[in-house]
Design a protein around this nucleic acid. Structure first.
Length: 726
DNA sequence: TGCTATT
């Protein structure tokens, strides 16, 4: 009955990474995304678009995710309820109930799908809330309640799901989740009505030994208690003798006042005072003008990252002042980073604190099923988290293996890094976390024109009983900055197949690598770490002629000695500006499957990144000159850092990494076009999907092709990274 | 008189 807050830490970490696939599979986007992949691959002959065009198409029409779901929908539609066997009396009762409900439901959302989220962190935006909750199902609406005047978050909001079951999942998963300095409460929202407002009571004069349970027992005779709390001293933890009781209905609170105010509880010598609680916003310290001014802008725009980081920082600073725990690690770590935007702007250091736009932490080696809430929970205990972002593949909606967490306070970010580096999340060891000031990153990128886009595509193809198994894989191509690198790795699993082959010809401007391999049984991606720096998973390839699969994060080819044949795959990679760009054209005839072949170079460890991350930590500058020096240094180091990341993504290591990009894909037009195109050529439009669906049907009728494309794409610095980052 | 609880 009483919904007291829970401080039990949710056990999501393992489930999110271990069994998260089930959750993800339940999501329409994921399922649809896979279907869409196939569709696009099967789709024949639309003209090949450029990578830029494809990216633009994806941005413009990202929602082509509903292929092949019609049949399911039909099935669902057929599930009509026919439970009209009520007796007349029962019907009367139902009618009465409905009337009662209607009194409260003035076009409100279905109460079972509509959640109220309380105790949200001050800086959390509506988009961030949505991103957290959408992990559990389609969200019909999401609303963060803000002060009408100042725009400041009131710390609660509503999330209305499409499906009741998703709402239940969200409650189970998120209620009690610790975010920053708050423990959120997620519960079904009561239907809004005037009768539930103003039902909060302030109680003082309570005996110091009275527990929350005692308090509830005292008040429960007068109505349904929604929340109760006894305030305790922050330091001693002892009761202050005051508390709150929120009733469901105002009249219940009224009744409690009449009955209990001035009475003396059992085992007490002092009468208690019971009265309506103040509006918490009425006696709050006035917020800082800057935050008050800027905060409303947080409601605009679609960025998950704080669009106005300064506002977030200001608000967070205010929150930190109110909640000292937010800065509880400050005294432990005295190191300092030179790049704080306000500092740059103002050219001064204010006291001992640097107001910052937040500190961005890269998090690597996340499982494909990773959801935002995992990152929230992972980093929340270390301090104020402004935002989290799981970078996802546009098509599959799966995590690409990395994400970002922005924390308000530098010290807390550093502590999180130090604590979480090497942390095992699910079956993966988090490999890297680097703290970078968002503006520093922007500057570094701009100054160095760095590679932003690296597509690392892992393809897991499962062909069963196919002699002619073909797998179409898309290669997402980002080209926002005119430079990108594709790193593709195909994992092909073929069973009962004697004739499938893996053949590639990769032409690059810098070099040509030709490799040929028999079909392979590769590691399942669920057991293969992406960035296995710790384990340094050196890929193996035993087939003669196959270039070393030089990617320490993905391919592990175990060949079975089949001879190579049917070398009909041609992968052409164009390079520009010394950085590869993927532009792939594939022509497959029969019996072709591709597997990944990173050209030439052998795997190298990415552990150096661990060192790199720590290099972003600086001593506090003593003067402005030092500050500028450190800023410059950080930019340069961050540039190097990104390069290292890119290199580790290729697995090539060193200079070769920037050049070796084999782009492998394969066509699967079993009886149709033999021309497979890369993702750039596959638009994301519904039209394309439709075409593809038709092709898919064709494949279905053809025993020679059975695609189970678990396309998993991992990439670093995709185009939308910058959208989030700045 | 609070981890700002009803759009």
């Amino acid at each position: 009955m009483v919904e007291g807050q829970t401080v039990v830490q949710q056990q999501q970490l393992q489930s999110a990474s271990g069994t998260g696939s089930g959750t993800a599979a339940a999501g329409g986007a994921t399922t649809g995304g896979v279907a869409n992949n196939q569709a696009q691959q099967n789709g024949g002959a639309s003209s090949a678009a450029t990578a830029v065009a494809a990216a633009a198409a994806a941005a413009a029409a990202p929602a082509a995710i509903v292929n092949n779901t019609a049949a399911n929908n039909n099935n669902n539609n057929s599930n009509n309820n026919n439970n009209n066997n009520n007796t007349a009396a029962t019907n009367n009762n139902n009618n009465n109930n409905n009337n009662n409900n209607n009194n409260n439901n003035n076009n409100e959302p279905d109460p079972k799908t509509n959640l109220i989220v309380n105790y949200l962190p001050q800086t959390m935006s509506q988009d961030e809330i949505r991103s957290l909750f959408v992990s559990f199902g389609e969200v019909e609406s999401c609303k963060l309640i803000r002060d009408k005047v100042t725009g400041q978050s009131l710390g609660y909001g509503f999330v209305n799901y499409v499906k009741q079951e998703d709402a239940e999942k969200a409650i189970n998963a998120l209620n009690g989740l610790r975010l920053q300095n708050k423990t959120i409460k997620v519960s079904i929202a009561r239907p809004s009505s005037e009768s539930i407002k103003g039902a909060n009571l302030y109680v003082s004069g309570l005996p110091k030994n009275m527990t929350q349970s005692d308090l509830e027992s005292l008040f429960s005779p007068f109505g349904k208690i929604i929340t109760s709390r006894i305030l305790c001293d922050n330091i001693t933890g002892l009761s202050k003798g005051v508390g709150f009781i929120r009733f469901d209905q105002r009249f219940e609170a009224d009744r409690a006042i009449k009955e209990l105010n001035g009475t003396t509880p059992k085992n007490s010598t002092e009468p208690i005072t019971v009265k309506f609680a103040n509006n918490p916003s009425s006696n709050k310290n006035s917020m800082q003008p800057l935050a008050a001014y800027i905060a409303p802008q947080n409601t605009r725009g679609g960025r998950a990252f704080p669009a106005n980081a300064a506002a977030g920082a200001a608000a967070a600073a205010a929150a930190a002042a109110i909640h000292p725990n937010a800065g509880r690690y400050s005294s432990v770590i005295s190191r300092y980073s030179p790049l704080a935007s306000d500092l740059i702007t103002n050219g001064m250091i204010q006291g001992n604190t640097i107001t910052s736009s937040g500190w961005c932490i890269f998090v690597y080696n996340l499982a494909p099923e990773t959801e935002e809430n995992v990152l929230w929970q992972l980093f929340g205990p270390f301090g104020a988290v402004q935002s989290v972002k799981v970078i996802r593949d546009l098509q599959s909606n799966k995590c690409k293996g990395f994400g970002f967490v922005t924390m308000t306070n530098y010290e807390e970010a550093v502590l999180a890094i130090q604590s979480l580096n090497g942390y095992t999340l699910g079956n993966r060891v988090l490999q890297l976390a680097a703290v970078v000031n968002a503006n520093a990153a922007a500057a570094a990128l701009a100054a160095n024109s760095l590679v932003l886009n690296h597509n690392n595509n892992n393809y897991n193809n499962h062909n069963h009983n196919n002699n002619h198994g073909n797998n179409g894989n898309t290669i997402a191509a980002y080209d926002q900055f005119g430079k990108h690198a594709n790193h593709n790795s195909n994992h092909n699993r073929q069973h009962n197949s004697n004739t499938s082959n893996t053949c590639n010809t990769s032409k690059q401007k810098q070099h040509t690598t030709t490799s040929c391999s028999s079909s392979s049984s590769s590691n399942n991606r669920h057991t293969q770490p992406l960035l296995a720096a710790a384990t340094k998973a050196t890929a193996t390839a035993t087939t003669s002629g196959l270039s070393a699969t030089a990617n320490n994060r993905q391919s592990k080819l175990t060949t079975k000695g089949n001879s190579c044949s049917n070398n009909n795959n041609t992968a052409t990679t164009f390079t520009s500006n010394g950085i590869s760009s993927g532009n792939n054209s594939y022509h497959n005839n029969s019996n072709n499957n591709t597997s990944s072949h990173e050209g030439g170079a052998t795997a190298s460890s990415s552990s150096s990144i661990l060192k790199t991350s720590t290099k972003f930590i600086y001593n506090k500058p003593q003067n402005h000159f030092e500050l500028l020096q450190q800023q410059l240094q950080l930019q340069q180091e961050f540039a190097q850092f990104l390069t290292n990341v890119a290199n580790s993504a290729t697995g090539g290591g060193g200079a070769a990494a920037s050049q070796n990009h084999n782009n492998n894909s394969s066509s699967n037009a079993a009886s149709g076009s033999n021309v497979a195109r890369n993702a750039a050529g596959n638009t994301h439009s519904a039209l394309s999907s439709t075409t593809a669906a038709a092709a898919g049907n064709k494949n279905n009728n053809n025993n020679s092709s059975n695609n189970n494309n678990n396309n998993y794409q991992s990439s670093f610095m995709p185009s939308h990274w910058s959208n989030w980052f700045f």
